[in-house]
Amino acid sequence: MKLKEIDKRRYRGHLNRVFIGSALALAAFSLGIAQVLIALFPDADGSHFHWNLLGVVAGALLVGAGLSRLRRHPFMTEVVYVWELKQQLNRISRRRRQLEAAAKEGDATAMQVLQFCYAGSRQLWQLDDNTIVMDELAVKQTELHNLAGKHGVTLDAGAYHPSMLERF
């Protein structure tokens, strides 16, 4: 995965529309399906919990399928990019201890993965206006640059590939 420049306003606008549209579709599908099931299979006790639950599950599946089909639509470009970036950062986070230990020992691959992680995190936090921990990120980035200089490694976030994590 390569980091891309994303227009923050466009991303936020599209994300909000996708979120609101998904929520409205989920509510409509859930209620509609549940009402159809209740009409077809009424319960004498008046408890329709299982039909309501089935409506929510079916609605969630329909919304998920719809989002999956729309994934490649140009409107979804920024939203899908950020979603995939978050997935990659989560994969890296699960291996962070091993990566940091390997980087301290001079492992160039671990340093490249951490460089991607820090650059991706900075981009993600700026897109989401989550700048509270940027100072901490800057400290980690400086430590990584010093470590890379010590071991003669040139850092490039663009060199990251998901297969690099397989060793850790």
Rank of each mutant, 00 (worst) to 15 (best):
L127P: 02
P42F: 10
R10S: 05
E105K: 15
E5R: 10
R95W: 00
L165G: 10
F49K: 01
L89M: 11
K8W: 01
E105L: 15
R72F: 05
P74H: 07
L124W: 04
L61W: 11
E136Q: 11
R167M: 05
G46I: 12
L127T: 02
D129E: 02
A39K: 10
A103R: 04
T154Y: 04
G149S: 08
C117H: 13
L26I: 05
A39H: 09
V113L: 09
L53K: 03
H145D: 14
N52Q: 10
R10V: 08
N90V: 11
A110E: 07
L61R: 01
R97S: 11
G32L: 07
V153A: 10
Q98D: 13
L99M: 09
S163E: 14
D107A: 12
T154C: 05
L3H: 06
M76I: 10
V82A: 03
Q98Y: 07
A25N: 03
V79A: 07
L24P: 02
I132C: 00
E143I: 01
V36E: 02
S30C: 09
T154M: 11
Q35R: 15
T131L: 12
L124M: 11
A44R: 15
H161W: 03
K104S: 14
A44K: 15
D107W: 08
Q126D: 03
A148V: 08
R72N: 11
L3D: 04
R97G: 00
H14L: 05
W51N: 07
D135A: 14
A34L: 01
T154Q: 14
V57H: 02
G64H: 07
E78G: 11
R69E: 03
G120K: 04
I38M: 10
Q126C: 02
E5T: 12
G21P: 08
A110Y: 05
Q87V: 12
G106W: 14
A157S: 14
D45C: 03
E136R: 03
E100H: 09
L40P: 00
I33T: 05
W51Y: 13
V56T: 11
S93C: 00
H145P: 00
